[in-house]
Design a binder for these strands. Sequence first.
DNA 1: TAGTAACG
DNA 2: AAAC
Length: 198
Amino acid sequence: MTVQILPERFKTEDQRALVADLGAVLERAPLFVPRMPRSGKPFSVRMTNCGPLGWVSDIDGYRYQPHHPETGAPWPEIPQRLLDLWHEVAGVPVGPEACLVNLYGPGTKLGLHQDRDERTFEAPVVSVSLGDTAVFRIGGTTRKAATRSMRLASGDVIVFGGDDRLAYHGIDRILSGSSSLLPEGGRINLTLRRVTPF
DNA sequence: TAGTAACG
DNA sequence: AAAC
């Protein structure tokens, strides 16, 4: 098992500081609704990004690009405390290039998927949970592999590395009202990724 | 197949 | 009815 869980890696004070950092990101890079390739069906999660590259999905497919799909502006910088986290836990001599910001409200789900649009899988994916607890599902590296459910609470960090870098995972449900961290409620997930080889 | 719906 |  190379999925590493760091429970409550961020205490309340640092979680609040992260939320403030994200407020600045959201001002410059508004949330957008991703859509499924081909069908154009909308996701229930809303997204934005920070970093040199951002992950987007629309009718043309999944990809990383350097600009916001609606404003055309470059993504804002990744907040320093997230860069610090990466350098502490990722175990690679380079920084992350993308930080996907996912906002989950009540009823938001994200189906089982792999993070596989990067051009390198050498670096792990580092994920931070903030706000309401999520019912998270994780499986193996094939769709048929058994899955298990676990809860992710505010401040928890997961590192997907090694054999589990390509593990299928998703969000079954958000436990609304389980945290008071976010003024509007809901959950934010931050996903730090290296996109290009190093 | 990062989506949905129907079924048991 | 919700979860799977």
